[in-house]
Design a protein around this nucleic acid. Structure first.
Lengths: 137, 137
DNA sequence: TCAGAAATTGCAAATGAATTGCATTTTTGG
DNA sequence: CCAAAAATGCAATTCATTTGCAATTTCTGA
């Protein structure tokens, strides 16, 4: 099995993404942020690390029409994203986990009435979130 | 307003996409199909036409993790895709319209319990469709 | 019917995100 | 401190998509 070495790059990236919490970001954004005067990092390194983190389940990884790059979002650790849908806000891009009993109803309905086995990972429905509606009002 | 000229390219493309119905396809696939011995078309033309058709609502246009290119699917004319979610099969890629009363329940739940205003267009949940499950069994 | 305007196409070049090969550097375990 | 394993930097590459522009096609109205 692959060992993992702690590196400065990984640390910087982790610091960035854990600070983002509900927000989503692209590899380029991580790179831009980390390419300040003090720090120095390579874009390929960012890509490699983000992809590994996504594989490890630390990050959600998805494409949407809203952006021409792959977006990532920090997946809170104790959260198993295989059991619920995700709602993404069309305005702010935030991803909200649809964690409630209603998920069972959705899943069961799809199965029973449509013979469709829901796969939650990567399933993202769009809309406008609470906060953004408030802002607009 | 922009006039529209009927061209051979448009005709060929329309013929292809209307024959696809439930199936999805990329610009490249349309191009490959239309680049037979008899016919001749340019990839840029395919892109331009598909994008216009998507703008006009004739095609659904979406990205998903399953493919590294934008996918299109024929949007049946009398179907208003603003009122229902879409289920995409992870195996065959087909998009199924979730048109049933249960949609109201989902929409209402999201609104009432999560203060989330669902936007159906572009909302695609993933899973395995009936047909693909049969095949695997 | 025909000339000219407008739209469309073909082609090649450009763009831009993402990936990869490889030499170099860093990390870690003994 | 020393190798080997892993990670990085860099440049080159890939691949989908877009764009500029000249050539072609479509349409319209005199």
């Amino acid at each position: 099995m692959a060992k993992e070495y702690k590196t400065k790059s990984k640390q910087q990236i982790m610091d960035y993404i854990t600070a983002q919490q509900d927000k989503h970001f692209s590899a380029q954004q991580v790179y831009d942020y980390l390419s300040g005067e003090k720090t120095q990092i390579n874009l390929a390194t960012v890509y490699r690390n983000l992809d590994k983190l996504a594989e490890d389940g630390v990050l959600l990884r998805y494409k949407s029409m809203g952006s021409n790059s792959v977006m990532y979002q920090y997946a809170v650790e104790d959260k198993d994203c295989h059991n619920h849908l995700h709602m993404q806000c069309n305005r702010c891009g935030r991803i909200i986990h649809l964690e409630c009993e209603f998920m069972h109803e959705i899943e069961e309905h799809l199965m029973r009435e449509h013979d469709f086995s829901l796969v939650c990972e990567g399933s993202v429905i769009l809309g406008i979130c609470k906060e953004c509606k408030k802002k607009e009002a």
